[in-house]
Design a binder for these strands. Structure first.
Lengths: 216, 216
DNA sequence: AAACTATCGATAAGAGGTTATCGATAAAGA
DNA sequence: TCTTTATCGATAACCTCTTATCGATAGTTT
């Protein structure tokens, strides 16, 4: 039984929440008190009904003729996503992709703090990338246990993905953000989120291909 | 009318095609002639019916009791996705994420060749990142026209996203792979594919949060 | 040659998500 | 105070995608 819903909440809605959050934070910064679905709809190009449905999953209620209270809504989304407090994460694989993730500061706003990176390449161990330490993969297990880190970011080469995953699970990692193209096998209690850039690229290129075809 | 389907093909199916492709290329390398849905299903953890439906969109037909011809299937998927010939792309924004994309060699297998990067930071212009030139953003328009590049990869800071997008469209870019969190406005003929790491992170953290809650 | 079996493809049933509609409500204006 | 209007929330219709079922087919075995 694959996890199709996040405990009853439509996954597409959950995936849209960060979109709203970004807009709402901007509005809050601009001093807006309240916002209506109509306004959100116009800014993000989505139907008003969908906006209402999406926001409803956070448990927030709006007032007729007024809309939603912006600060309240920001808070509700952050709470729903578990982004009120930042959570620590370990990154495994300090290759080019891993390095980028270490340097990307956008995760901070989304409740994620990458504490350190791990690699088994002696040339990388001991160095610093974007001000984050690269540690020996050998000490991963110990550090996960000592620091109670729950999130692992997987950015190793595909052929090593399953092996590293197994070690992560054994160490106590509870959620894996998988940047490799590999399909991971994990116990049912472990949360795996695949990024799958190739899927994104697939839709891009097939749409472009058809678009070009239809023009000739 | 938003683009919900790629000309009648289910988007989820298109997004799964790279998964199959990866497996099939491995099988082909191992010398397998034929493969059944049952085998694919076991390797990737998906229902046999779905595998059959997904593969069907490429137009390929299998034979009872045998399955599909591996090389034929690989070819069909590559053709469907437009990955038979690699397409050139320009990357805009040579920050940490952009640099990573320049260094990621997995795109080659997926029909994408990043030719060069563009930035407006004088400190970056003229340098090389992962053996790719970083050029002045000023010359972007000219080079797109001269080289007939159709794909632009957007990896600039969010606040510059729309402005750069407009310039891309004006230059003749037909498809934009958007790594920023911004919601882009483009003419209907332009293909935009959003990567939205924050959406992925949102499902990860909300699932993890609920998972942890349910255990206490 | 006939029976058996793995597999496909098509059709149908079922979920999950999206979009449309409509009454209820609260603010604003007459 | 009454009417008007913007907005929400709920219900229902619709659409897309997934999953189940079943007959057809091509190999294999007897």
């Amino acid at each position: 039984m694959p996890t199709d819903t996040v405990k009853g909440f439509p996954i597409p809605s959950v995936r849209r929440l960060p979109l709203y959050l970004r807009l709402l934070r901007e509005l809050r910064a601009d001093g807006h008190e309240a916002v209506s679905c109509t306004q959100i709809s116009e800014s993000l190009g989505q139907g008003t009904v969908q906006v209402r449905k999406d926001l409803a999953i956070t448990g927030i209620v709006g007032r007729p003729k007024v809309g939603y209270q912006v600060p309240e809504l920001v808070d509700a989304i952050e709470t729903f996503l578990g982004w009120k407090n930042t959570r620590d994460a370990f990154l495994v694989g300090a290759g080019s992709l891993g390095s980028a993730l270490l340097g990307y500061d956008g995760f901070q706003e989304n409740g994620l703090n990458i504490v350190a990176a791990f690699d088994s390449d002696p040339a990388k161990i001991g160095t610093r990338i974007h001000d984050k330490e690269v540690l020996d993969w050998e000490v991963f297990h110990d550090l996960v246990q000592r620091m109670h880190v729950l999130i692992g970011i997987l950015a190793v080469p595909a052929h090593a993905a399953q092996e590293v995953t197994n070690a992560m699970v054994l160490a106590g990692i509870r959620a894996i953000w998988n940047y490799t193209p590999a399909t991971l096998e994990v116990p049912p209690a472990i949360v795996v989120e695949d990024v799958r850039l190739s899927s994104s690229l697939a839709t891009l290129s097939s749409r472009l291909t058809r678009q070009l075809e239809s023009q000739r």
